[in-house]
Design a protein around this nucleic acid. Structure first.
Length: 685
RNA sequence: GGCAGGAUAGCUCAGGGGUAGAGCAGAGGACUCAUAAGCCUUUGGUCGGCGGUUCAAAUCCGCCUCCUGCUACCA
């Protein structure tokens, strides 16, 4: 790639939602972006990095309500906490704003006016469930109820976990608001829709024009652009925490309408603070706009967002960089396992540089998930950074502390400096396209070449011979220059290390081109440790603490879920001897439906049941449940029967199996019913 | 169900028609400047399976298996 002399770059990360703290998953994106931005700045490009808190929507209101304070208080605190976490990880924004700002409000109105003018806005009545007690409409995720297709109870508002049916929450049988526990009613309200289908052709072209990773372009092509695009519902009726729509009082912009606009609003704030013109950044062909986002929010950024920009006459994103999700040791982050780790928690135990480097080794330009393998994390950081890179300085710097670097750079460095300098282009290219993993591999490859040089030139031997002081100084000058070049290359990832290298050699690292010219004749400071090795025990502690915190938090929010079951029955009836699976499998348990149930007048404990196993298969079973059940209550019920039990002649007839029930006996007998969805004949295993 | 991506050494991954690679882990050795770091040597793989194209396939094509993700008020 040809890098023009000086580019103008506007870079954003997705706006974190003001509903919770930053965790290691978020950091993939902010570190990725920060590294890219630092790289661009190091190259001498004009680059501003902007971000903001995403503050609107129902979830914010609910949380504020639960905490008994205003939305404004909540988002102010969140913003502060987010910014602290970012700063502590070395993520340097040029400006950090909020979607709840005057600047953002202005741009929302402006873009809205443009959509109106383009005749892209339509009104439609939408039926939604309304929680009378809370006084608000309920998003799908706040409703549960019985599936209209299969009658499974307690299903989510948009689809059934049991039969997989999708539906609208208004179709639910017996809907319940998860917010108040009351039954919501169906109400109709006016919503405003944007007809992005009008820009179908434009979006098709734009999404396929190389602005997106190939995976994403294909995805959009197949899933969205193959058919007419649906109108986008961009309004929510009051009460809603957000901006009221000027020409539609009582309606507010949906959080996903104003979130991306926050990019522009934040730019405007930055411009106002720095005497810059917004148009130079957002209405200027020469400015590149780069968004970094996760794959979960692709379609907001690649369909709605460009449609809005296009309509309002703003520049379109030059590139949308899309990353995957973080897993920890191969699994999704888990609160109970303690792998859901807050940024602040990490920092209590570990150095941010470790994570910056580790993520860098794992990031590529592809849309793929990134695994934080904790064992590898320790190995990589300790081996690569401490063992190879920093080691170069720590094993040589002290030999030249008094004379400093040689007056001129030695000619006999085995071509190493030149080799290091030449690799710079390949490393730069890898940074530029977002393939940080490759950049790190190339850099560590160089470090691997540098250590044998020190080894074979053995400065610790040269030191013993007063005749060889010049040679000693030269060897160390070479090693330290190689170290410095590595620090230049690593500085987007490890600004701290670069700063320490600058202090050691008395020459701050500020430009990529410092990798091209060796340093000579300068003093060398007393060597101080630049990076501690990762202590694996701290990781363990961090995980344990995270798990404990999450457990405590979960317990606090779900007090209803505390159980206090007596162990009495179990102690009186100890568990039987262990059996092999095969022994259990001999028992053929089946779901059966009670099709008839009859009194047996002469029997003290028995009821005569006719069970159906589906089709024409019928069994007569005498069940000892007379004290606990009325026959008429059993007809139609599903039960579990032992289907292959040898028939038994009884006084009142032949019993062809038995049904299973729990309890101590007498009146306390509880027949087992399968959960919803089971049908007669199903085997029970 | 549909779609996308993936499967290469014990682990994490690179490579991508011409003798299978790196780091870490493992084994052996020499050294002792350095944060028990570093250096040298070395074990280890039918590149998920089956077919096809080709002089040649880990690589290209087809089918299959398994994982992961996504799946709009949609299929």
């Amino acid at each position: 790639m040809v890098l023009s002399p000086m580019r103008n770059l506007l870079v954003t990360s997705a706006l974190p939602y003001a509903n919770g703290p930053i965790h290691l998953g978020h950091l993939v994106e902010y570190l990725q972006t920060d590294i890219w931005v630092r790289y661009q700045k190091l190259r001498g490009n004009r680059c501003i990095y902007l971000c903001a808190d995403d503050t609107h929507g129902t979830a914010i209101s609910l949380r504020a309500q639960n905490e008994g304070r205003s939305e404004e208080e909540l988002i102010a605190e969140m913003s502060e906490s987010h910014q602290k976490d970012f700063a502590d990880f070395g993520i340097e924004f040029d400006h950090y704003g909020s979607t709840n700002s005057e600047a953002s409000r202005e741009i929302c109105h402006e873009i809205w006016a443009a959509l109106r003018e383009a005749d892209m806005v339509v009104e439609e009545e939408v039926e939604q469930l309304y929680d009378v007690e809370k006084g608000m409409f309920l998003a799908d995720r706040f409703v549960r109820g019985t599936c209209p297709k299969c009658n499974s109870p307690d299903q989510p508002g948009d689809n059934c976990d049991s039969c997989g049916a999708t539906y609208s929450p208004v179709e639910l049988i017996d809907p319940v608001s998860t917010l108040s526990g009351t039954r919501p009613e169906i109400r109709s309200a006016k919503h405003l829709f944007v007809q992005i289908e009008q820009l179908h052709g434009f979006l098709e072209e734009w999404t396929q024009s190389g602005t997106l990773p190939a995976e994403s372009a294909n995805y959009l092509k197949n899933f969205f652009l193959a058919e007419p695009l649906k109108d986008w519902d961009v309004s929510r009726p009051a009460p809603y925490f957000g901006f009221e729509i000027s020409d539609s009082p009582g309606n507010y912009w949906y959080v996903w309408f104003d979130a991306p606009i926050g990019y522009i609003g934040t730019t405007k704030e930055w411009c106002d603070q720095h005497g810059e013109q917004l148009a130079d950044w957002w209405k200027n062909e020469k400015t590149e706009i780069h968004h970094f986002i996760g794959k979960d929010i692709q379609y907001f950024h690649t369909l709605f967002w460009p449609a809005m920009l296009k309509t309002a006459g703003y520049s379109l994103p030059t590139k949308v960089h899309i990353h995957g999700f973080l897993t920890v040791d191969g699994d999704k982050m888990s609160k109970s396992r303690g792998t859901f780790i807050r940024a602040a928690k990490y920092l209590e135990h570990l150095n941010p540089s470790y994570l910056r480097y580790y993520y860098a080794t794992k990031l590529s330009a592809k849309v793929e998930d990134l695994d934080l393998n904790l064992e590898e994390f320790v190995a990589r950081v300790n081996s690569d950074l401490v063992g190879k890179v920093v080691n170069l300085a720590s094993r040589t710097a002290k030999f030249v502390a008094s004379p400093g670097l040689s007056e001129t750079y030695p000619t006999n460095d085995e071509g190493l400096f030149e080799k290091f300098a030449q690799q710079g282009d390949a490393i730069a290219e890898a940074y530029e396209v977002g393939n940080f993993g490759k950049a790190m591999r190339l850099i560590i490859e160089l470090a691997d070449a540098a250590n044998p040089y020190v080894e074979s030139n053995a400065p610790w031997e040269l030191r013993k011979d007063p005749e060889k002081t010049q040679q000693l100084q030269d060897v160390c000058t070479v090693a330290l220059n190689l170290f410095r070049t590595l620090c230049v290359y690593l500085s987007p990832v490890l600004p701290d290390l670069a700063a320490k290298c600058g202090e050691l050699l008395g020459d701050p690292i500020t430009s990529w081109d410092q990798s091209k010219k060796p340093l000579s004749g300068t003093p060398v400071a007393k060597f101080k440790h630049m990076m501690q090795r990762v202590d694996a025990k701290r990781i363990e502690t961090m995980i344990e603490e995270s798990a404990a915190e999450n457990e405590a938090a979960a317990a606090a929010t779900t007090p209803a879920l505390s159980f206090d079951d007596s162990g009495e029955f179990l102690s009186e009836n100890p568990i039987a001897d262990e059996i092999a699976f095969d022994d259990f499998a001999k028992v053929d348990l089946r779901v059966a439906r009670v099709v008839e149930a009859h009194e047996v007048p002469e029997a003290r404990k028995l009821i005569r049941l006719i069970l159906s196993l589906g089709g024409d298969e019928r069994r007569q079973v005498f069940a000892g449940i007379k004290a606990a059940y009325q026959p008429e209550d059993l007809v139609g019920e599903l039960v579990v029967m032992v289907a292959n039990l040898a028939p038994r002649k009884m006084k009142f007839g032949v019993s062809e199996g038995m049904i299973v029930a729990a309890g101590p006996g007498g009146k306390d007998i509880f027949v087992l019913n399968p959960d919803e969805g089971a049908i007669p004949g199903h085997r029970v295993m």
